Simulated assay, not measured.
Amino acid sequence: MSRLLGHRLFWPSAVLAALLLVNVVFTNGFLNVQMKDGHLYGSLIDIVRFGAPLILVALGMTLVIATGGIDLSVGSVVAIAGALACLRISLLGDQNSVGGVLGAIGLALALSLVLGLWNGVLVTAAGIQPIIATLILMVAGRGLAQLITDGQIITINSSPYKLIGGGYWLTLPFGIIIVAAVLALAAFLTRRLALGLLIESVGGNAKASRLAGISARGVLLTVYAFCGLCAGIAGLMISSNVSSADGNNAGLWIELDAILAVVIGGTSLAGGRFSLGGTVLGALVIQTLTTTIYSIGVPPETTLLFKALVVTIVCLLQSPAFRAKVLHGRRRRPSASARPVPEEKKASVSA
């Protein structure tokens, strides 16, 4: 039992199950999944669908954190990607042109990849601390997104683009399929190839990995580029779901939710070992928590406080030191009177 309680995914799974149980109590038919017009509908489907952008950003954040870094700019990259794609589509003569939409998507993803590489260059070549390097793009990127949209909300009407975040394919929301594909790719690259071992080596001990002949610079550039790409895909998903781009509010604070998802999933902020499955579980916990807040009628002004409280509880339950002190109690040392008397001392007393 203690081994099960100590598993890094046990407490996030338990909290997720508890949140789902709360929703079952407060929402009639919460677990029902129905087929309508060839599409699956239900609250469980909606949780994964609306949590898809967070899962994507958190997957990229996981690899960055595994190297001992951090990326605070993912929210800005989300806004930039959505803004650029919507701007290009709005300039098309036919917004339903598949070729034109694909071109806009490719341009947005290419820019997201470049922005991720830019973060990597600042960290590796310039030697800037990751939190500072990505903070630069976090601030400047939000301004760039508003510059692209000219401070306005760009609205489009494109069926092909709507498919990314609001469409269905093979009975499932297309966003879920995108997340599954990205997760499968990340798992293959990190668990079937040597990339995962290299990431853990750089994050665990950068100096030792360098002495072992591992190119830390190449690994860091790869993970930051992947993180930027994941944020770009999430930006396309968010903007296509509402058929508009808002450079000011799109992806706002998503970087904090992504970091929380990674930590809840069992990945240490100090770097080293990481868990992609744990990150997905952590993102689902956060999205289910958001759904729970609305379903039980928590006042909007206390939403963030309630969310922070639940996340804090999850993190504390994951801490072995906290469980040892609170859940199991401290082991007290035996008092002097209760300590056994050595045999030599007994002999001297009897003599």
Rank of each mutant, 00 (worst) to 15 (best):
G143P: 10
L5S: 01
G247T: 13
I131R: 04
I131Q: 07
I156V: 11
A110M: 12
A52F: 06
L317T: 08
A194T: 15
T134K: 05
G204W: 06
F174S: 13
L316A: 04
T190I: 09
S335I: 09
L317Q: 06
G68A: 10
A347S: 14
I136T: 14
N28G: 15
F226V: 15
L281A: 01
L183P: 07
W169K: 05
A194F: 15
S158A: 13
L72M: 11
T267F: 01
P320T: 11
G271W: 11
I70Y: 09
V341Y: 05
L317F: 15
I153R: 09
V242W: 08
G93V: 08
N32V: 13
I233E: 02
L252Y: 12
I313Q: 06
S319C: 05
G60I: 04
A321P: 05
I55M: 13
G165S: 03
R273W: 02
T279L: 01
H39Y: 10
N241E: 10
G203H: 03
G75H: 11
A338F: 12
L252H: 08
E344V: 13
G175P: 08
L137N: 07
V98S: 07
A83L: 04
T67W: 00
V263Y: 06
R333G: 07
I233A: 00
V74H: 00
R8W: 06
G235N: 04
L9E: 04
L56P: 11
T267Q: 00
A66L: 08
T149I: 11
G42T: 09
R330I: 14
L87C: 06
A231S: 09
V77F: 01
G60C: 01
S73C: 06
N241Y: 13
I156M: 00
I264L: 05
L19M: 12
G265K: 00
G166Y: 07
D257F: 11
A336G: 07
L229E: 14
M35S: 08
L117G: 12
A110Q: 07
G68Q: 05
I89T: 08
I156D: 00
L59F: 05
L281M: 02
P12N: 04
V314S: 07
A225E: 06
L185A: 13
I296T: 15
I156Y: 01
G247H: 05
T62H: 03
D150K: 15
R273E: 05
L44G: 10
L305P: 11
G60R: 00
D37H: 01
S215T: 10
G143W: 11
G203P: 12
N32Q: 10
K162C: 09
L197Q: 15
S13A: 06
L305Q: 04
A250P: 07
L19V: 12
L305A: 11
A58Q: 02
V223E: 03
L113T: 14
L115T: 03
F26T: 12
L304I: 14
L63K: 03
L236P: 13
A140G: 07
V326A: 02
A52M: 02
L197V: 09
G120Y: 12
L172S: 08
C86Q: 00
T155A: 04
I199R: 11
G100C: 11
G82W: 02
M138Y: 12
I178Y: 13
L317R: 04
G175Y: 11
